[in-house]
Nucleic acid binder design. Structure first.
Length: 822
DNA sequence: GAGCACTGC
């Protein structure tokens, strides 16, 4: 069930309408009491008084140990205005603590009348309960609860369809250890402070859509409203730009990045009794950091939690658990050694802090089989040289031989191969026997406009077989229903950062066994299926077991800054799930020194602390700080540009020739001869200044409306952070902007990107100023084909050759100054 | 003359 959630496919229009809905309640908060009463009357009719009791009776898991939620009110992170104004409605009462009379006044939120119709919520939850009982994990509930009562860490392998992501939090939320617990912690000045620790479960997800839709699902299953829609809501979520929680939130889904951000402010995670780390097998860099921090937390003395344990559940879909087991064991072993050494020395820590014997080696493991239909694997008898051609043949072989229904999902490497195969299939389909079912070819890749992506989910016309040609996006992010045949080319494009060259390369590489299994699984979600691998069994056996963790493939600057900001001074001693090469760590440290994020002794500087809190790469953050020294106008302009640089490409690719010309004409007034940075600025300004219909404006200029919406989100977030940091005046100035000052803007960029520069050499090519590498201006740049003294670029990428992307013209003496200033 | 996939108070 949990993986089903991936079917949700964020549509920009949906998102904006959601946001509109969310802003509705605000005005109702201040309305007068008379209208409130009317609302309450209406609500009473919807909710019979016995409803709370009935709800408990019908939801065994929820009702097991009714919680008397005491004063657990979170001190911060209350974003709902309703809650702030009416603290008397806090956690407690109605839902779980028995058949008490309903509080007289419920929050006056007319829009929730349907959402918080508890009767229908309960009915829905009851219906869902029947489905939940059938999940493979359901029979393991007691085992899982017992293991976590005994031990603090659990590793859980839950295969696809096991139900782990939705059920684990529900199994645990009523456990005794999951209650808010009063505790005393010692403060810096040595005094003791009473705090409340725990009460909430965090479940991390690698992707935003997954976090939101899982929260929605679990709220339904628990019969509680979702997030901030009601102060009684027990399930919420938190992702960038969208946090929806209530004071009574006890189960919170969040992205890994969000948990890291929370840890910057609350290193001991005092809100939580448990953290569930889901989808570890994907091994994004954030999950590695989370795992390292959590290991330190569970195996340390927990002084910041007043000794209250934190339970950690690490969940993965693949069975590679030995390394995780070793990882956490090592933490407990180190702790034991340290304790033995420290036994005769000073007794430090709080009274509660020394109960760690019971949890030494406190790791349990659990393996849950999935619920998948069998998928037959068919290998290519001999090695395939042209997988596009091979895929074409297999597609028609399936279509001719296999019965309907049953769509075909083909995994390819990128947009180019997708489009090639699309054309080929369409050509061949023309000559097909008319008595056969038709074929509908549907491309699917991230850069495809949203509307075109949505076509994949629409049911095919009668007597038509869908053939979906997808990139990696269909491996994890998007689930298409109706697929019974998978064709897997065995390859994927992978980004790899090359430390020595400071260069990102995007190359086609063989996938791992675990990715191959994941792809195959896409055929068996609804019925038995078949998977055609366009490689031999021998090739399959030679594949790596798992994906290369991102921490080995990316620039570590941001990860290291995050660690430094968390007080990890000794990077070498940090518990890495996979330790990056020393060279990569050193390079990142050097880069942080270069942008003044670290002091000479390697400890974090004020600049570094500031950068760590910005939702930007350290270099872009550095540019922001530099711009703030060049005045408000420059800072506002730089924020606009940075917002573009930190989202996907804002300019749509032109497909046909006519469209291309139309786009050129329409975009002409946006282009700036200074380069891409100022072109982005003029685009944001034009878009933001469009008051009639931004979507139409975007379409006309062949600008991605979806990307621009993200740009506006980032821009708003950055502006608001700059205002809080007093880098911008408190009030938003609506007066029109003065003309931008290109020199100041580009000089601000150079203070973060001094090493991302190249100069024109006599043969007409560009060479990087640091390293003397040949680099070409990317064809997507407005400076493509132009020759200027020197360029500044945002990215250095190798695909077929080395390209600079996000390029602007700069003067050599500016570059010299920027390099000298470090 | 070119665009794997995610993510951040």
């Amino acid at each position: 069930m949990p993986e089903k959630v991936h079917t949700y496919f964020g549509d920009s229009d949906d998102e904006s309408s959601n946001q509109a809905a969310k802003t509705v309640p605000e005005p109702t908060v201040v309305e007068d009491g008379g209208r409130k009463k009317k609302r309450n009357k209406k609500r009473k009719r919807d909710e019979p008084p016995e409803e709370a009791q009935a709800q408990r009776d019908n939801l065994p898991v929820l009702a097991e140990e009714p919680i008397k939620t005491p004063e657990q009110a979170p001190k911060k992170a209350i974003t709902v205005p309703v809650v702030k104004k009416e603290p008397e409605h806090e956690p407690s009462s109605d839902q779980t603590s028995g058949p008490k009379p309903r509080p007289k006044s419920r929050p006056p939120k007319s829009f929730t009348d349907t959402k918080t119709n508890f009767t229908s919520l309960r009915e829905k939850a009851n219906a869902l309960y029947e489905l939940r009982k059938k999940l493979p994990i359901f029979g393991h509930a007691d085992e899982i609860r017992q293991k976590l009562r005994d031990q603090d860490v659990m590793l859980l392998v839950g295969e696809t369809g096991s139900g782990k992501s939705t059920q684990i939090p529900q199994f645990l939320v009523n456990e005794f250890w999951c209650r808010p617990t009063p505790a005393k912690v010692r403060q810096e000045d040595g005094s003791e402070k009473s705090i409340t620790v725990g009460g909430c479960i965090a479940i991390t997800q690698p992707r935003r859509v997954a976090a939101i839709s899982l929260a929605r699902r679990v709220a339904e299953e628990m019969g509680t409203p979702l997030g901030s829609s009601s102060p009684a809501s027990k399930v919420g979520y938190s992702v960038r730009f969208d946090t929806s929680t209530s004071p009574s939130t006890r189960v919170k889904f969040l992205t890994e990045g969000m948990l890291l951000q929370e840890m910057l402010h609350d290193p001991w995670l005092t809100k939580y009794s448990a953290v569930v780390v889901d989808e570890v097998h994907e091994r994004g860099i954030n999950v590695d950091l989370v795992a390292g921090f959590l290991r330190n937390l569970v195996s340390g003395k927990r002084e910041g939690r007043g000794g209250v344990p934190l339970k950690v559940v690490v969940m993965s879909a693949t069975a590679d658990m030995e390394s995780l087991m070793g990882f956490f064991q090592e933490g407990f072993q180190q702790q034991e050694q340290e304790q033995q050494q420290g036994q005769n020395q000073i007794s430090n820590g709080t009274e509660n802090g020394d109960n760690s014997e019971q949890n030494s080696m406190g790791i349990s493991a659990c393996h849950i089989k999935g619920r998948q239909f069998p998928v037959k694997t068919i290998y290519s008898p001999k090695p395939v040289h042209d997988f596009v051609d091979a895929a074409l043949k297999i597609i028609f072989q399936i279509h001719y031989k296999e019965p309907m229904p049953g769509d075909i999902l083909v995994f390819l490497t990128g947009q180019e191969t997708v489009e090639n195969l699309e054309n080929l299939v369409n050509e061949y389909a023309i000559g097909m026997d008319p008595s056969l079912p038709k074929i509908q070819v549907l491309p699917l890749f991230a850069a495809l406009p949203q509307a075109a992506q949505q076509r994949v989910f629409a049911p095919a016309p009668p007597r038509t077989r869908k053939v979906i040609l997808a990139t990696n996006i269909a491996e994890t992010s998007v689930t298409v229903s109706g697929v019974r045949y998978v064709v897997d080319c065995g390859k994927a494009k992978v980004k790899q950062f090359r430390t020595r060259l400071g260069l990102d390369s995007l190359l086609v590489k063989p996938i791992s066994k675990s990715a191959a299994i994941q792809r195959k699984g896409r055929a068996g979600r609804e019925a038995p299926g078949q998977c055609f691998r366009l490689y031999t069994e021998k090739d399959y056996l030679a594949l790596d077991e798992t994906n290369t963790p991102e921490i080995l493939r990316c620039d570590l600057t941001q990860a290291l800054l995050n660690m430094k900001a968390r007080g990890v001074d000794d990077i070498v001693r940090f518990p890495f799930l996979t330790r990056p090469p020393r060279e990569a760590l050193e390079k990142a440290l050097l880069q942080l020194l270069n942008i003044d994020a670290l002091q000479d002794d390697g400890s974090i500087s004020d600049v570094g602390l500031h950068l760590a809190k910005l939702p930007l790469s350290p270099t872009l953050g550095r540019v922001l700080l530099a711009a703030s020294e060049n005045g408000y106008d420059c800072l506002l302009d730089v924020i606009d540009i940075i917002s573009c640089l930190s989202v996907e490409n804002i300019f749509l690719n032109t497909t046909s020739e006519e469209k291309k010309e139309a786009a050129e004409t329409a975009r002409r007034d946006l282009y700036r001869r200074e380069g891409d940075h100022l072109t982005m600025l003029s685009t944001v300004r034009a878009y933001a200044g469009e008051n009639v219909d931004r979507k139409v404006w975007a379409e006309r200029h062949l600008v991605s409306h979806r990307a621009m919406q993200s740009v506006m989100d980032v821009r708003k977030q950055l502006r608001s952070q700059c205002r809080s940091a007093k880098m911008l005046p408190r009030e938003e100035q609506n007066s029109h902007y003065p003309d931008p000052s290109p020199d100041l803007i580009l000089q601000s960029f150079l203070s973060g990107f001094a090493t991302n520069t190249a100069r024109l050499v006599p043969d007409g090519s560009y060479r990087t100023i640091v390293g003397n590498q040949t680099v070409a201006i990317h064809p997507s740049s407005v400076l493509f084909g132009k020759k200027v003294e020197a360029i500044l670029y945002n990215e250095f990428v190798f695909t077929n050759r080395s390209y600079a992307r996000g390029v602007s013209a700069v003067q050599m003496d500016w570059v010299g100054e920027a390099l000298a200033g470090r």
